[in-house]
Structures are given as structure tokens and as C-alpha cells.
């Protein structure tokens, strides 16, 4: 796989598995949310209707089990919103609540199944 980000320093690469099972490499913008990075890469399977206000549950992703500890813990609000999802797992996160940092380089995420 070629990484389109190789030339851009400090720009972590995220690997996103779509519902169709394709793996897409996505350039994360440091300081932006993971949701924005996925959306701007034209992966249309997340809707992110509220635009990152943590007011809906339409940017749901599942984190690779081995990488959960890379991420900050859930807030009570994110936890509550995810509880409304019928497809929540222990790996569930709202991608609008994850800020892209250099630490996230190589993060593997799967778009949560449609509810």
C-alpha cells in the first residue's frame, strides 16, 4: 500500500476499514478530530450530522482492540450517546471526540455497522 502522507511530516496516517471491508489510509490533521479526517477523505459511511458537537451518534467507529490504550478515555457524554447505539461494542468510540495527535499514527479503525 502506498501512503499518500509520506511527504507530509507530523501527519499521522489512520487506517480505516469501511463497511464494505476495504482498508483506506487517511491522513489525519493534527488538532482536528478523527471524524473530520475520515469525512474529508470522502468516506461517506459516517454522517457526523451534528458536525462534531457530540450531539448525535453518527460518527461511530470501532477501535482495533490492540490500540485502545492509545486513546483518551471516554467522557460521560460520549459514553451516554454510545449507549443509545444498538451496535456498541467495548471498542466503540465517537470519532468526533478523538483529536488527532502524532501518537495516533497507524491507528486502525472500523466504521461501525449501520444501525
Amino acid at each position: 500500500m502506498t501512503l499518500p502522507t509520506a511527504a507530509i511530516p507530523n501527519s499521522p496516517t489512520l487506517f480505516i476499514t469501511t463497511r464494505a471491508g476495504d482498508i483506506r489510509s487517511v491522513r489525519g490533521m493534527i488538532g482536528h478530530s478523527v471524524m473530520e479526517s475520515i469525512r474529508d477523505a470522502q468516506i461517506e459511511e459516517i454522517q457526523a450530522i451534528c458536525g462534531g458537537a457530540c450531539a448525535c451518534c453518527t460518527c461511530h467507529v470501532l477501535v482495533d482492540a490492540e490500540q485502545v490504550e492509545l486513546l483518551p478515555p471516554l467522557s460521560a457524554e460520549e459514553d451516554a450517546l454510545l449507549d443509545g447505539s444498538s451496535v456498541r461494542t467495548l471498542m466503540s468510540r465517537l470519532s468526533c471526540q478523538l483529536e488527532v495527535t502524532e501518537k495516533l499514527d497507524g491507528l486502525r479503525l472500523t466504521i461501525a455497522p449501520e444501525e
Binding site: 451518534c57 460521560a76 457524554e77 451516554a80 450517546l81 449507549d83 443509545g84
Partner: peptide, 9 residues
């Protein structure tokens, strides 16, 4: 009170 919001839906 996000939990009420989610469960109230």
C-alpha cells in the same frame, strides 16, 4: 443529561 436524551428518544 445525555443519558436521558438517549433513552428518552
Amino acid at each position: 443529561a445525555p443519558r436521558d436524551y438517549v433513552q428518552g428518544r
